[in-house]
Simulated scan of single mutants.
Amino acid sequence: MADQAGFDVPPTSIAALQALAIASRRGEAHSPRLTAGALKLLEQLLAAPEPAANLSISALAAQHGVNASSLTRLAHALELSGFKALQALFRADATNAAFFSTRAERLLDLGQVPNGNRAPGQQQALWQEEMRNLSRTAEGLDDDALFRAARALIESRRVHIVGQRACFAGAHYLAYYLGYLRSDVRLIDSLGGINLESARELAAGDLVVGISYRPETRVSVDYCQQALEQGATLLALTNHASARLASMTDLTLLASAEGPFFFNPMSSLFVLIEMLLSHTAHELGGEAVASIRRREALIARWQIE
């Protein structure tokens, strides 16, 4: 219920949790009594809600450099029953259709977005976080999974690559350069409503590469599910181990996408795709060179600039 200041205590939504954090930072009357460390932890959780929604208490604590008990104490200070109740707020927010606008509002309200009036060092916040995203992606990459993914790209009869909305850029990039290395690569772009017709061709021996970031696009997930039902194999490229695509296959490559940005940071996805293409080319060896030369000869013949 709301207290005298109009706060929801305990909070029943991320918006209410955000309001409590702002009130606590300002020292407003009737705001939650949070220690400096607890307030900092709460603001960090709000600035990066995806891990808070999906990681275990121990993993989330390790990510923020605190003990798991700190998360439990924070939940109790907010008059929640415990960590699971706190995490439930983030999970509910992750399924909200207003995912990006909510994130933008939260970052602005919490002062997480650099602007021209702030110290010069804060202008590098996005850059520094993207560097951390790249490092986390490289450090967390499973060499065996990368090898199996490359072999799947090589050995599959056909490769369908699907990624909608922001992920379409990565899907196009992968499809274009994979087409230099092998034949029968198809980019699923939804033009003309051809998704169902394309999926109908898939069968055992084929591979679908599904690229989807939270909040995941239903079309991409449905296409991958249909492909699996018809016997195809799925390679998932996503930013969370708990993503729906990741739950559908044992072949998943993760690209870290965290930080104070209104939308999903995409730099690590492209680096991950570059690693995958490079590994595939190395596995193919001389075949890759021959295939690239054939593609270049065709480009020259058609005088494509």
Rank of each mutant, 00 (worst) to 15 (best):
L126G: 05
L126W: 07
L126C: 07
W127M: 13
W127Y: 15
W127R: 14
Q128G: 03
Q128P: 01
Q128K: 04
Q128W: 06
Q128Y: 10
E129R: 08
E129L: 06
E129A: 05
E129S: 12
E130D: 15
E130W: 13
E130V: 15
E130T: 15
E130G: 04
M131G: 14
M131W: 10
M131H: 12
M131K: 08
R132Y: 06
R132N: 11
R132A: 13
R132I: 09
R132L: 14
R132Q: 14
N133Y: 06
N133G: 05
N133F: 08
L134Q: 06
L134S: 09
L134F: 06
L134H: 07
S135N: 11
S135G: 11
S135P: 02
R136S: 15
R136E: 15
R136W: 14
R136K: 14
R136H: 14
R136T: 11
R136P: 06
T137A: 14
T137D: 05
T137N: 06
T137R: 02
A138Y: 06
A138C: 08
A138S: 10
E139V: 10
E139S: 10
E139L: 12
E139P: 00
G140F: 12
G140T: 12
G140H: 11
G140C: 04
L141W: 05
L141C: 12
L141T: 11
D142P: 01
D142L: 08
D142H: 08
D142I: 08
D142E: 05
D143P: 11
D143Y: 08
D143W: 13
D143H: 10
D143V: 12
D144I: 10
D144W: 12
D144L: 15
A145N: 09
A145C: 12
A145V: 10
A145S: 14
A145T: 07
A145P: 04
A145H: 07
A145Q: 15
L146D: 12
L146T: 11
L146V: 08
F147K: 09
F147W: 10
F147E: 13
F147A: 13
R148D: 06
R148M: 12
R148E: 09
A149R: 01
A149Q: 05
A149F: 03
A149M: 12
A150Y: 02
A150R: 00
R151A: 13
R151W: 09
R151S: 14
R151M: 13
A152P: 00
A152E: 08
A152G: 02
A152S: 06
A152V: 07
A152Q: 03
A152L: 08
A152T: 01
L153C: 05
L153K: 00
L153D: 00
L153I: 07
L153N: 00
L153M: 04
L153Y: 04
I154W: 00
I154R: 02
I154P: 00
I154Y: 00
I154M: 01
E155L: 06
E155C: 04
E155N: 05
E155D: 11
S156H: 03
S156D: 00
S156C: 03
S156R: 00
R157E: 02
R157N: 02
R157V: 00
R157T: 02
R157F: 02
